[in-house]
Design a protein around this nucleic acid. Structure first.
Lengths: 129, 129
DNA sequence: ACTTGACTCTATAGTTACTATAGGTTTTAC
DNA sequence: GTAAAACCTATAGTAACTATAGAGTCAAGT
């Protein structure tokens, strides 16, 4: 299949596919005589692997590491484990931050009386302090 | 004070201060004869306003909007309210996403037996599916 | 008076993960 | 045969900074 079909099948935009290729996350595809990229099911699977990792917010560099690890099936998977654990720690940290944000924003929102002018606005006041 | 002192007092890096100025979040400061930026307490307050907004993950564009609103003290503060509400919605949405991420990552992590090889690694398997 | 070092200046490039565009080529359908 | 659709590469833009290069300014010490 050509890139347009891969794009539709995978749900990745054409530019994103070309971008992943340039970043080394997808192997260089075959080309037609006219230089069009040609993909097979293996390429689709590669792309879906990347997509799944991205949906977990794993960075492109880490995805590359995972791909490299995948290609060494006999090695220990402790590095895979470590990578996922690190990702999990990152997510937990961000969640904690967002929780604090949410609290402050809710607190602020509650101080705003929408009949008021900006002059007396509780939100602006709390941002100023 | 000069930019170095403002940087230390505020906790913002020098480059960030210059960047905020270029983006119009801080008013253009006085200059010494030798073209060094000169700040006063007002500038420090402006910077702290920006910093506080950023700590709430409010985008620079929205901070600019808030600053513009601050300068119209007689207007209704409903737009301020709307902006904060929108920010809150954003944070809530991201929290929901992260919660789902966390669950999947935890689920994945639990399938990894660190004695195993990559070949049999449950994490890689779930990423492949 | 001179030099050294700390501080500042502007302008530019790099970061992440894409998205969008320009300008050109190839293929497909009628 | 031609027009539209799909494809190609290369480059610039996004957000919010951070880092660098190369130059100018200023204060202290000799």
């Amino acid at each position: 299949m050509k890139i347009g079909e891969l794009s539709k099948t995978s749900g990745c935009s054409i530019q994103t596919i070309r971008f992943y290729e340039k970043e080394g996350l997808l192997s260089d595809p075959e080309r037609t005589e006219g230089n069009f990229r040609l993909y097979d099911v293996t390429a689709l699977k590669q792309l879906e692997f990347v997509k799944h990792c991205r949906s977990l917010d794993i960075s492109l560099i880490d995805i590359k590491r995972l791909i490299d690890l995948k290609n060494k099936p006999e090695e220990s998977c402790s590095s895979v484990n470590a990578l996922i654990a690190q990702q999990l720690a990152l997510v937990k940290k961000r969640m904690k931050e967002l929780k604090a944000l949410k609290n402050e924003l809710q607190q602020m929102a509650s101080t705003c009386n929408s009949d008021n002018t900006i002059e007396g606005c509780g939100i602006i006041k709390s941002l100023d302090s």
